[in-house]
Amino acid sequence: MNMKLETLPPYRIVFARQVGPYGDGNRKTMEKIKNWAKEKQSLTSAVFLGIAQDNPETTKPEQCRYDACLVIPNDYKLTREEGIHEAILPGGLYLVFQVQHTKEALQKAWTEIFPAVYQNGYEVDSKPVMERFTGESGKDDICELCVPVKIE
Rank of each mutant, 00 (worst) to 15 (best):
Asp125Leu: 12
Asn120Trp: 07
Lys32Phe: 15
Arg12Asn: 14
Glu82Met: 08
Cys64Gln: 00
Lys60Val: 03
Glu123Lys: 15
Asn35Met: 10
Glu39Asp: 13
Ile84Leu: 12
Phe114Pro: 03
Leu93Tyr: 05
Leu5Gly: 05
Gln107Thr: 10
Gln18His: 15
Glu86Pro: 00
Glu57Thr: 10
Ser126Met: 09
Thr102Pro: 03
Trp110Ser: 01
Ser45Leu: 07
Val117Thr: 12
Asn120Ile: 11
Ala37Leu: 01
Gln107Ala: 14
Gly20Ser: 01
Pro10Val: 10
Pro73Gln: 08
Ala52Thr: 01
Pro21Trp: 00
Gly121Leu: 09
Ile88Trp: 10
Arg27Met: 14
Leu8Pro: 05
Arg132Leu: 15
Ile113Phe: 06
Pro128Asn: 05
Val149His: 09
Ser137Ile: 11
Ile51His: 06
Glu144Gln: 15
Asn2Ile: 07
Pro21Ala: 10
Glu152Leu: 11
Asn55Ala: 04
Thr29His: 01
Pro21Lys: 05
Arg12Tyr: 10
Arg17Glu: 12
Gly135Asp: 01
Tyr118Cys: 08
Thr44Glu: 14
Gly92Glu: 07
Ile33Glu: 00
Gln100Phe: 14
Lys139Val: 11
Gln41Phe: 12
Lys4Ile: 03
Glu31Tyr: 11
Ile51Lys: 03
Ser137Thr: 11
Ile51Cys: 08
Leu106Arg: 05
Val99Ser: 00
Ala16Cys: 15
Glu104Cys: 10
Asp125Tyr: 12
Lys77Gly: 13
Lys4Val: 08
Glu86Cys: 04
Glu136Asp: 12
Ile13Lys: 02
Glu81Ser: 07
Glu136Pro: 04
Gly92Asn: 09
Asn74Pro: 01
Glu152Tyr: 09
Val99Lys: 00
Ile151Tyr: 15
Gly138Pro: 05
Arg80Trp: 04
Leu89His: 05
Cys69Glu: 04
Ser126Val: 14
Glu112Ala: 06
Trp110Leu: 13
Met130Cys: 09
